[in-house]
């Protein structure tokens, strides 16, 4: 580990930790313990892959890709390891809200948590200020497809909020 690499990682960690952790928190429906584990896994990947970052996309897009891919893998990996309760994972996968929400804005994560896992990840990138082009680059689908999906997710989110 060179001093330069450690410095670069430190700056990435400082700048992107809130973004990554918040996405994990939203994905895990506000479960801060699991979100913390997942965030740590993501930064491990960032560290391991840092030398392969060629700057073809922005650093933020690159980190989003790692975050989205890691989120989608995390629950399935946990299920295989059976290190956490099966019912809890099933709840997160089936969009049932978990009880362990301990952040300030519980309702925010509760509302996002009612969306399916793909929709959750897509809308969180938009909430974070990512452009449709950026989301398309992260996911690997067309901008038109992203636009259609986001429009539908916003409608779903509106319905969820109206029913609360």
């Amino acid at each position: 580990m060179s001093k330069q690499d450690a410095q670069l990682f430190e700056s990435i960690y400082k700048d992107h930790y809130p973004m990554v952790y918040q996405m994990c928190l939203g994905y895990m429906k506000g479960d801060s313990a699991q979100a913390g584990d997942l965030t740590q896994e993501i930064f491990i990947i960032i560290w391991n892959k840092l030398s392969s970052f060629e700057g073809k996309s922005t650093l933020k897009t690159w980190i989003y890709r790692i975050t989205v891919n890691s989120c989608l893998q995390y629950l399935r990996k946990q299920k295989r390891k059976r290190s956490i309760q099966f019912e809890k994972i099933e709840g997160v996968l089936k969009n049932e809200p978990t009880e362990e929400v301990d952040t300030k804005n519980q309702s925010l994560y509760a509302a996002i948590g009612k969306l399916n896992e793909i929709d959750r990840l897509l809308i969180m990138m938009i909430l974070d200020g990512e452009t449709y082009d950026g989301v398309a680059e992260v996911i690997g689908i067309s901008v038109v497809n992203v636009r259609v999906k986001i429009h539908r997710i916003k409608q779903r989110l509106k319905k969820i909020l109206e029913n609360e």
Partner: peptide, 9 residues
């Protein structure tokens, strides 16, 4: 490779 886009991954 988790740095690839989601569909590719």
């Amino acid at each position: 490779d988790p740095t690839h886009n989601t569909v590719g991954n």
